[in-house]
Amino acid sequence: MARFTLTDLGNKSGEVVEAAFNGPVDITKRGKRKFVLMTADQFDRLKSASSQRAFRSDDLTTEERDSFLSGLDAVAHEGDRSND
């Protein structure tokens, strides 16, 4: 990840922004990471990914687990058919 200081942000803003097009950029102050600069698209992807939920299979009911496994089987079989 690219890293710039707050001073760099003021003095080299074009370079900092250009780096952000390639991925998130750490902005530091006195050697400590204070901010991360990223494009709006990068932020939107991050935001939508964080709204996803994860569950432990141990926490599912038997019915939920069976439904989930059936769905995985269906997806796996679709992949088998597309390789024919």
Rank of each mutant, 00 (worst) to 15 (best):
D44C: 05
N83W: 08
F4V: 02
A54H: 09
R53A: 08
L69H: 02
D41M: 06
T61M: 02
S13Y: 05
D84L: 14
S82C: 08
N83C: 12
T61P: 06
V25G: 05
A20W: 05
F35T: 02
S57W: 12
D59E: 11
S70L: 07
D80G: 07
V17H: 07
A2D: 00
F55W: 05
G31F: 01
V75W: 11
G10F: 07
N83S: 14
A20F: 00
K47C: 03
K32F: 05
N83V: 15
K29V: 13
V75D: 13
A76R: 12
S48M: 09
D44T: 12
E78N: 07
L6A: 02
D41K: 08
Q42C: 08
L9K: 05
L6S: 04
T28N: 13
L6P: 00
R53K: 12
F4Y: 07
A40Q: 12
M1A: 09
D41W: 01
E15S: 07
A2F: 05
N22T: 11
D84Y: 13
M1D: 02
M1Y: 08
L37G: 04
E78P: 03
F4C: 02
F4T: 06
R65W: 13
R45N: 10
D59C: 07
G10N: 10
G79L: 13
A2E: 04
K47A: 09
N11F: 07
S57Q: 10
R56I: 10
V16H: 04
L9P: 01
G31Y: 06
A76W: 00
E15Y: 02
D58P: 01
G31S: 05
K34N: 08
G23C: 03
A2Y: 01
S70E: 07
R45E: 10
A2K: 10
G10W: 11
L6I: 11
D8R: 03
N22P: 01
S70P: 01
L46P: 05
R56K: 15
R65C: 11
E64S: 09
F55H: 07
A54P: 03
E64I: 03
F21S: 15
L37Q: 00
A2N: 03
A54W: 03
A49D: 10
D66P: 06
D44M: 12
F35S: 01
T28Y: 01
K12D: 09
G10V: 08
K12R: 15
F55Q: 09
A74S: 12
A2Q: 04
N22G: 07
D59H: 13
T5R: 00
